[in-house]
C-alpha cells in the first residue's frame, strides 16, 4: 500500500526531507490504527460520560457504588498478588537459570518455555487447572488417594479468587522470567569481581551492588505484571462462568445482558475505569524508570 506513493517521488525531490509527499505513504497505517484502535478507545472514553446522548456523570457515579468498588478492589488484589508472586518467583527462577552456564541448555530452554507459557491463557489454561485440582482432577485424586486430603475441598475455591490467583501465576511467573532475564544479564560479572576484589563479601556485594542495580528493573517488571493481570479476561471468563467478582467479568455481564437497559453504558464506564487504571500503572512504570534509575542508559 505504501508503495503507491513511490511514483510521485522523483530523485530530484529526495533532498527535501520535510515535504509532505513521503508522509502520505503512512496514511494507510494511520487510518487503520485510527479506525480499529483509536475510535474504539475514544468511544469508550466519550460514552463513559454520556447518558442518552448528553453529558452526564451518572455512569461515573455508578463506578463508586458498592458492587463496582468491590469488583475493582478484587481486581487490584488479584493483580497485585499475582504480580508479587510472579515477580518474586520469576526473579529467583531467572537468577537460578542464569547462574548456570549462560549459553547452556537450561537457560535456552527456560527462555523458550517462558515465551510459550507467558502466552498461555484463556480456555486451555482454565481447563488445565480444572483437570488438575478440580473435582476429579488428577492431583485432586492422587492427593485424596495418598493422604485422604481433598484439595478441591468442595468449596469451589478454584472458581473464585484463590483459583484465579493460582491460575494467573501460571502465566505471570514466565512473563517475569522474560522481562527480568535481560536485566540479570546486565549484571556484569566484573561488578561481582570488582566488589570482591575491593573486600566485599557475597552478602555485601548483593547489599551494595546487586540489589540496588536490580531494584529498578524488578519493580518495573512487577508493574508490567500488574497491568498484565489487570487487563486479562479470557482465563477468568472460562474459570468463573457466572458471577462478577472482578472488573473484567463485570464488563462481560454488562455487555451480554441485553435485558437491563443502561447496562451498555455501564460497560463503557467500567471499560473507562480499566483504561484509567492501566494507564496510571504504565505512567508510573515510565516515570519510575526515568526517575529512580537516572544512572541507567
Amino acid at each position: 500500500m505504501a508503495l503507491t506513493a513511490t511514483g510521485s517521488d522523483t530523485p530530484t525531490r529526495t533532498g527535501r526531507r520535510l515535504s509532505v509527499g513521503p508522509s502520505l505513504a503512512l496514511l494507510p497505517f494511520l487510518v487503520f490504527v485510527g479506525i480499529f484502535l483509536i475510535i474504539p478507545t475514544v468511544t469508550v472514553i466519550v460514552q463513559g460520560f454520556l447518558e442518552n446522548g448528553r453529558f452526564s456523570l451518572s455512569n461515573i457515579e455508578t463506578l463508586f457504588t458498592g458492587t463496582v468498588m468491590r469488583a475493582l478492589w478484587k481486581s487490584v488484589v488479584l493483580s497485585a498478588s499475582t504480580a508479587l508472586i510472579g515477580a518474586v518467583i520469576g526473579a529467583i527462577a531467572s537468577y537460578l537459570v542464569v547462574s548456570g552456564n549462560p549459553d547452556g541448555l537450561l537457560r535456552r530452554g527456560a527462555v523458550s518455555l517462558s515465551g510459550v507459557l507467558a502466552q498461555f491463557g484463556g480456555v486451555t489454561l482454565a481447563f488445565a487447572w480444572i483437570t488438575t485440582v478440580g473435582l476429579g482432577g488428577m492431583l485432586q485424586r492422587a492427593l485424596e488417594a495418598a493422604f485422604g486430603y481433598d484439595v478441591f475441598g468442595g468449596s469451589g475455591w478454584l472458581y473464585d479468587m484463590p483459583g484465579l490467583i493460582l491460575v494467573y501465576s501460571y502465566f505471570q511467573i514466565p512473563l517475569m522470567v522474560i522481562v527480568f532475564l535481560p536485566a540479570l544479564n546486565g549484571l556484569r560479572p566484573q561488578w561481582r569481581e570488582a566488589a570482591t576484589n575491593l573486600g566485599a563479601s557475597t552478602w555485601q556485594f548483593w547489599k551494595e551492588v546487586g540489589i540496588p542495580v536490580l531494584t529498578p528493573p524488578f519493580l518495573a517488571s512487577a508493574l508490567l505484571l500488574f497491568a498484565n493481570a489487570f487487563a486479562a479476561y479470557a482465563t477468568a471468563a472460562i474459570l468463573v462462568s457466572q458471577g462478577q467478582i472482578i472488573l473484567p467479568l463485570m464488563i462481560r455481564a454488562a455487555l451480554t445482558s441485553e435485558v437491563v437497559l443502561g447496562q451498555q453504558n455501564l460497560a463503557f464506564a467500567l471499560a473507562l475505569e480499566m483504561v484509567v487504571v492501566v494507564a496510571v500503572v504504565m505512567w508510573v512504570y515510565n516515570w519510575y524508570l526515568k526517575r529512580a534509575a537516572r544512572w541507567l542508559q
Binding site: F29, T41, V44, A227, A267, A271, A279
Partner: peptide, 24 residues
Amino acid sequence: LVEFLCLLPLTIPALVIVVGIKNV
C-alpha cells in the same frame, strides 16, 4: 509516532477495545 501507536495495544486492554468497537 509509529512506535507509540504500535505499542499502544499493550496499554489498552483487549476488553476495552471490544467494548468500544461495536459500531466499527
